[in-house]
Amino acid sequence: MTAVLVFVGAMVGAPLRYLVSRAFPMPWGTFVVNIAGSFILGVLAGAASGSPAYALAGTGFCGALTTYSTFSYETLQLIERKNYMRAALNLVLSVVLGLGAAALGFWVG
């Protein structure tokens, strides 16, 4: 049953990530979903860790919504284009705000 919950959550998270990434220029769509996903996962970890809700929304939805690989790839693309300031900004803000969002979410949860 848990695998079905993860699957259903991912069915919502993946298309949402796609839509958000199309609404913002690179790399800011990925940035938005990663920060939002970090907050949501923090809330769930604080309130519902180990529950079916965590499998559905945490592992499934947040797992499909957020993406470390795209964050890495887009940062590398910015470096290759010699857009060092934007790459550094993306890197630092993603890590700092992602951790902060997760911590805030955990506190809220």
Rank of each mutant, 00 (worst) to 15 (best):
A36K: 01
L19G: 00
S21M: 12
F24H: 10
G105W: 02
G13N: 12
A36F: 13
F106Q: 02
G29K: 00
Y54I: 01
Y18E: 06
Y54W: 15
F39N: 01
F39L: 15
A103W: 15
V92Y: 08
V95K: 12
G109F: 01
L91N: 08
F71M: 06
F71R: 02
R22Q: 15
A103C: 07
F31P: 02
L104V: 10
I35D: 08
A14W: 05
L65W: 07
G9Q: 13
T66G: 03
S49I: 03
G109I: 00
L76C: 07
G29A: 00
G98A: 08
P52G: 12
T30H: 05
A57V: 10
A14L: 02
G42I: 02
N90Q: 14
L16M: 14
Y84A: 02
R81C: 03
S94F: 12
G9I: 03
E80S: 07
N90I: 01
G63M: 02
S69Q: 09
P52M: 06
G13R: 11
P52C: 04
E74T: 06
G29C: 01
T66L: 03
T67Y: 04
G109L: 06
A102W: 06
A55G: 07
F71P: 00
P25D: 09
P52H: 11
A48D: 09
A45N: 02
M1D: 14
L65S: 07
G58H: 07
S69C: 04
L99Q: 13
T66E: 09
G13L: 00
N90V: 04
A53D: 07
A14Q: 10
Y18T: 06
A102V: 03
V6S: 10
S72I: 04
L56K: 07
G13I: 04
G109S: 05
G42C: 03
F71L: 08
L56F: 15
G100K: 05
Y68M: 14
A3G: 03
L76S: 12
Y68D: 00
A102G: 10
L44S: 00
G50Y: 09
G50L: 10
K82H: 15
A103S: 12
E74K: 01
V8W: 12
A64E: 06
V8M: 13
F31S: 06
I40Y: 07
I35C: 01
A57L: 15
A23I: 00
Y18F: 14
F61P: 04
N34I: 02
Q77E: 15
V6W: 11
V108Y: 12
S69W: 08
G60D: 07
G105F: 02
T70H: 06
L41E: 04
F71G: 01
V33W: 10
G13E: 12
L104S: 05
R22W: 00
T70P: 02
V95H: 13
R22C: 09
T66R: 11
F61Q: 08
Y84R: 08
G9H: 10
Y84G: 11
C62P: 05
L89Q: 11
A64L: 04
Q77N: 15
W107R: 13
W28I: 03
G42P: 00
L41F: 14
